[in-house]
Design a protein around this nucleic acid. Sequence first.
DNA 1: ATAGTTTATTTAAACGTTTAAACAAAATTT
DNA 2: AAATTTTGTTTAAACGTTTAAATAAACTAT
Lengths: 341, 341
Amino acid sequence: MSKTRKVKLSDIAKEAEVSIALVSYVLNNRHPDRIKKETAARIKKIAKKLNYRPNPLAKGLRTQKSNAIGLILADLANPFSAQIARIIEDNVIGSDYILLIGSMDENMDKFRKLVDTFVNHSVDGLIIVSPENAIKEIKAIQKQGIPHVLIDRYFPELPFNFVGNDNFFSTRSCVEQLVGNGRKSIGFITHDTDYFHFHERKRGFVTACHEFGMNTENKVMEVALSDLNTNVDRAMATLLAKNPDMDAILFSTSVLTLYGLKYAVRNQLNVPERIEFMGFDKAEYYDIFPSPIPYYEQPLEEIGKRAVDFLMLEIAKPGAQTVREIVKGSLKVAKPLIEKS
Amino acid sequence: MSKTRKVKLSDIAKEAEVSIALVSYVLNNRHPDRIKKETAARIKKIAKKLNYRPNPLAKGLRTQKSNAIGLILADLANPFSAQIARIIEDNVIGSDYILLIGSMDENMDKFRKLVDTFVNHSVDGLIIVSPENAIKEIKAIQKQGIPHVLIDRYFPELPFNFVGNDNFFSTRSCVEQLVGNGRKSIGFITHDTDYFHFHERKRGFVTACHEFGMNTENKVMEVALSDLNTNVDRAMATLLAKNPDMDAILFSTSVLTLYGLKYAVRNQLNVPERIEFMGFDKAEYYDIFPSPIPYYEQPLEEIGKRAVDFLMLEIAKPGAQTVREIVKGSLKVAKPLIEKS
DNA sequence: ATAGTTTATTTAAACGTTTAAACAAAATTT
DNA sequence: AAATTTTGTTTAAACGTTTAAATAAACTAT
């Protein structure tokens, strides 16, 4: 019922008949050579017996560290965000840190508020999926010397720490794959935003098409981030109307792929015989679709791990390094449906 | 570059030429009647000018509160977990709390470690999706007087705070719906676990079937929590083999539904003409399937909101109340695919 | 014997708040 | 004019740690 009073250093000190400082030294392994073995052993034993847990608030207050890291996502409810969050969680927990998570909903005010709250709670570092046009805000974080790393989205012209997917490579290799499958006229459905990673995906697509001697006139549809059902529907219709010979469509995110698949089902497109679909990001639901959907898989595990690793390094020795890792994912082409892990 | 020193009470005090205590009183609105209006105004103005942010660690250390709440989920990467997390996030952030999130992966050790870490970081409260057989652990939390509330899963025989879906009602009304659609022989695919909520779902199914004069012999398949692809496949095959006349299948989670749909696609089941599928929980991917999938939708928004509301109340005045809210969701029957929000 | 080292431990300040209690000055009551 | 109350503010301890500096005791070395 009543909150059991927590064991603190002074309790151990009393029982061991030593000073608080000595207990602290022992438990933090501070001056191992200076401290008598037996005393150390005794203190450790008592600490264990009493099930001592350091108070992170006191510790944090004193050391100016909180052993917490903040993760700012686009939207936790979005499977992509959730997946990356989970990966980061695993990496962070291992280092005995706790993870604060917040969604900014592509909204600058929410983003600012999250940064503010997290910094205020003295997070030791931030992992950030940035909203559009957040350059000023990220710079401020940088200036304040708060260890941080951007993931997924970044600003190429600025020296921010970043680890993320090679977006140019990704769409480029999708096109390559489709061409390899004999496709001759490929459409691309992506978003209409200022995000650099979307620009890159488009650039990858267009560049590859040109390389393979295909034109991209009327083949790139950029839809708004909102109201996807309607917008993707319209985009698909336009794409198909303007390109009667189109024999493949590449999507720029898994959600766009989802809506594309919905369209295909609804309109009974002959996939993949007449027209092949290619998705972006892994998604469980691809194989509800009657035919296998090949896709490009971002190396999320790697991104999460590297981001956390870097952040930990940066926390340990601030300012010592910067990072810009553009990692490549891989193409997942249809396996027999039966054989899925 | 260098960390900008944070503004603290003493900075304000100095500039306002008053004591630290007075600043604290003013900023916390402590003795409003006791403090001279002008002084208060001056202090507030300076605080705003200096952009003062209280240090949560110091505050927490002194007041024994952290303004953080911990959320323990099954697995953040699972869309169901992610959705509920997002809802809770929104409700928590509004109250100026921060949210710590962890996944326990149905694993007792991880669960214990999470509770431990969170409690250690002095969370003011816990929202818990419990693993199997965690009664002892929850009791310990209760005994320690840590405000908490279970969601999704619970232990009916014990007086734990809980808010969650009415699982008996949910499957019961699914059967009702299917019978209303003229279905005469219904199968049920669920999990083989000790979780009470799964027992309830099964009980709801069985009870309803009997009410409607259907037997349930060989119609309930309970698959393990792991290796779903194989296990659901096998369960589906068995179900259909043993019940040649079966004209509907109800699933017990959205993930089971997903695998069911995969099976249907792979085996070209005639859905819904010959056999109707009914899902559990909302999932975007249902409408990739060629025919609309009706489903029972848990009232997640309500669950999240009520859980947080209760927790806040409990944090404000501990021990004053308990809660056990079993809330009902609703059936979502097929709308024309074109018209989706 | 005395000074200098080494070894083992303690003292005390600090981190940034909150808050009970003390205090001083002004206003009010006797 | 003395005593009391009210008003406005300050003092100082406390929360649970960490850590530089001080200290004390036990050994060298001279």
